[in-house]
Simulated scan of single mutants.
Amino acid sequence: MFSIVKCLRGPGGSLNFDYYAYTAIVKTRTTDLLCGGAIIAPRWVITAANCVPRNDRSYYQIKCGSQHLKDTDDVIVANVIQVYRHPHYDPANQNNNNIALLHLDTVVDREPCQSIKLARSFPEINQDKKISVDFSGWGSIDKSSEPKPSDIIRRFAANILKQNDCQNRHQNKPIFVNNFCTSLPGYDPNFIYGACAKDNGDPIVVKRFPNITLIGINSENGCNTFEFPEINTNVLAYRPWIRDTTKLIL
């Protein structure tokens, strides 16, 4: 059993890594962290397309199995044998189709890691009921000119915004149909709130214990810019592409 660590990325509670063992580190052989990702099958990880711009498949690795970023004991490290960026991803419009699949050379859906299922449907958003989701990852917890990743996995909770509310707060950039935005329920200047540097690709889940299901990955974040919500990719909108690419039954 992993230890419980205090959450320092936002409001509330403790973090039991057992609940977040689907969270993967996207890295290279020489760097500890590029982005986050989610294990969705024995040899598949989903992440953001802007995290894996290179076609050199031998460049990327996946690590999972520890709450500590730099752990080398009792973790699983897998090589990426194929990168599948969405065919309509355009770096000039980063948040449109910002999704990628990584095919691995070894099984990662085993102890101490685990996979997560895609949700059956996206939560219904209305004015009377707030939908809370959870982010997890090792992104930066400082706002320096050269932000460093966290040494330990962090999580935070956020509420899903209605699409028009999100667009109103991001007036200078388009919010695409397959995006959704999240906003934090409160603000405290003593915390780095929300997603930050190297949190792209972090899994976004809905928790209905004992079930935890994946609905999105982070696409763009404001790193404590409270007035601008995170922009995320709705992975459920890409279920047919994921199924066709991986040959998985989802």
Results as ranks from 00 to 15, higher is better:
L104N: 03
R85D: 04
N97E: 12
Y89T: 11
N98G: 00
P91E: 13
H103T: 06
R110L: 14
P91L: 10
A92L: 13
V107E: 15
K117H: 08
V108R: 05
D105M: 03
S121I: 06
Y89W: 15
L118D: 06
V108L: 08
D105G: 07
R120P: 03
H103W: 13
Y89V: 13
N95V: 05
D105N: 15
D105R: 01
H88S: 13
A100H: 01
P112A: 03
L101P: 02
D90F: 08
P87T: 08
P112Q: 03
V108A: 06
Y89N: 10
V83L: 10
S121K: 13
A92Y: 07
P123Y: 09
A119D: 11
A92I: 06
A119E: 09
H88I: 05
D109P: 04
N96G: 02
L118F: 06
R120F: 02
N96V: 07
N98T: 00
L102G: 02
T106E: 08
P112I: 00
P123H: 08
N96Q: 15
Q94P: 09
Y84R: 10
A119W: 01
K117M: 07
S115Q: 15
V83D: 05
I99S: 05
C113E: 06
K117C: 12
D90G: 10
H86Q: 04
S121L: 07
K117Y: 01
E111Q: 14
A92W: 04
Y84L: 12
I116Y: 01
V107F: 09
A119T: 01
L118P: 04
A119F: 02
L118C: 07
Q94S: 13
C113F: 05
I99W: 01
D109W: 03
D105C: 02
H88N: 14
I116P: 00
S115C: 12
I99E: 01
H86T: 05
H86P: 05
N96C: 08
V83P: 05
Q94K: 12
N97S: 11
I99M: 06
H103M: 15
P112N: 02
P91Y: 06
I116H: 01
P87N: 12
Y89E: 10
Q94T: 14
L101F: 00
N93A: 10
H88M: 09
P123L: 12
L101C: 03
N93L: 13
T106Y: 00
H103R: 15
V108H: 04
N97M: 12
T106D: 07
N98F: 00
N93W: 05
P112F: 04
R110D: 05
V83K: 04
